[in-house]
Amino acid sequence: MSIRGLKKKQPKTFKVKVITMDAEMEFSCEMKWKGKDLFDLVCRTLGLRETWFFGLQYTIKGVCAWLKMEKKVLEQEIPKEDPTQFRFLAKFYPEKVEEELLQEITQHLFFLQVKKQILDEEIHCSPEVTVLLASYAVQAKYGDYDPNFHKPGFLIQDELLPKRVLKQYQMTVHMWEEKITAWYAEHRGIARDEAEMNYLKIAQDLAMYGVNYFPIEQNKNHRDLLLGVDAKGIHVYSINNRFSPNRSFEWSAIRNISYSEKELTIKPLDKKAEVFKFFSSQLKVNKLILQLCIGNHDLFMKRRRVDSIEIQQMKAQAREEKARKKMEHQRL
């Protein structure tokens, strides 16, 4: 066959760049690929099996969107750039990290994402909790504390605390390092995956953890509100209080969620209860809210059913792996 013939046979491709929390990857995608084809390729490359928490995110006209799985990549409203960039991120959060995150890679990606959200102050965190979290992050990165090796200044390059916390105290970089190191030294013997899991176990109790917030308006009196969607349900907050919702609808108590143009309607299971209607800023945002509701609701229901064979196998594998690691760690 001639070179020309070979060339003709090759399918047309386009390039994408996928950015994870700690790596960048480039892929050649076939023009006909659906979102799922690209997503599966990324998951296979990462060795990730707990795929249901994740998605490929992009930004279009200032709004965050997630690549749809069942639609062709090129038929979606993605940015016109070469290569097209996607962020591989957790889209849904577990209700209990210690029970649901099985693979080490899944835990690690969650750890990195939540740590960034805390440092970027997207999740509010008190100063004392940030110090404790920082000590686990240091244990995960540096292993056991060794004063001969971890000399003063060893944390100078690490971003460990949110800027807001640093500003709250008259403390030098070295004083912070000393404080964090004192707690870091307490974690001796904890392996990297355990330290990251301890970090997540603390972070999951923070009020803003795992909540996607959207500004909304209620039709009645046009008060500005925030809608929060998370693993447990839908919450309504005052615009200046993202910590405690005024009202919550657990997934099991919701009959139906629907939208038309900018209006979204939540119908509670209890037919006597008031139907909650509100407006979001754009149709696109409504679609995103609904997407997050459907995904979170599905996971909520899945958690309350018997584990699939795949999950049972993964749980057994995770248990074995943990036991093996613990033994190896103790032996060392």
């Binding site: 004392e128 709250q168 105290y169 404080k179 707690w183």
Partner: peptide, 28 residues
């Protein structure tokens, strides 16, 4: 000596207390 890591809440209390003397007036 590093503080003893007893329980989560005790740890938080200890950190809070140790930070207190350094709090800026506006945030204390």
């Amino acid at each position: 000596n590093p503080p003893k890591f007893v329980t989560y809440h005790k740890a938080l209390q200890e950190i809070r207390n140790s930070l207190l003397p350094f709090a800026n007036e506006a945030s204390s």
